[in-house]
Amino acid sequence: MNPQFLVDGLIAGSMIGLGAIGITLTYSILRFANFAHGEFLSWGAYIALALSGALGFLFSALKTPVGPFSFGWSLPLAGILAILLTGMLALLLDAILFGRLRAQRGAVIIMVMASFGASLALRSVLEFIFTSKPAYYTKALQIAVNIGGGLRVTPDQMLALALTAVVVFAIHLLLTRTGIGRSMRAVSENPALAGVVGIDVRMVIRAVWIVGAGLACIAGVMAGLLVQIRPYLGHDLLLPLFAAAILGGIGSVPGAMLAGLIVGLSEAAAVQLIGAEWRAAISFVILVAVLLIRPRGLFGRQA
């Protein structure tokens, strides 16, 4: 087998891992599987596309590629704004939809259904605005660098891997070392007790939406940069995201990241062994295997 699959798998796994962390966090705190999470990836990618285009139009100097990378400063700047805006989008969705359903104290599954409807609407809005034609942040071509062992990596890909490592480390610190992170873990374990202890659960929910959507945005921009931007970008990643979140164990951030890498590497290996057309089936196989053998995943609590 060509070892290049390691690079492809790690790249795909990084995106899946970042998205799965968001799924696992919202799942463990809001207590429902959010089918609209994939749309945060797509929206993040498109918001960054629009902003980066606007920045490049206003200040053409920002379009000049930075160092060895394929993009100019307009993309990272747009990316930071996009993270904030994707977070806002999640908060808006919570305010007009999920929050109201929570207030009605309905069944969990109603939330799942609502997220299903929201995902459809969000995706089609993107299709309406940007059409289903693929878009790109940059047309610049990149030359892959040989990093030994027959592995070739583009500078953009290396940046994506490094960025993922930094972001995951930051999220880990946030959850274990800060007050808001502790509060998140507390709400995840027992929302009623969290309130009794003095934690404002609504604030924690808002924080979780922002963190989850922000991570999704980063994953979406990476997918857009390294592959392409399409309205179905997030939808097509949704099954791998769920597979990774469940394999890692719901509520476990390190689990989601590790499982994301496992799913990404398995997909890349399958592409080589069976063929690219079966890539999407891998997540389903992994999902079924986890549910069959160990439903609570690698690091999760009882399912």
Binding site: Y27, F32, A33, F35, V108, I109, V112, L238, L239, F242, A243, I246, S283, F284, L287, V288, L291, P295, A303
Partner: peptide, 10 residues
């Protein structure tokens, strides 16, 4: 309950 939803999506 949501695992069934995810599995059927799969």
């Amino acid at each position: 309950a949501d695992y069934l939803a995810i599995a059927t999506f799969g």
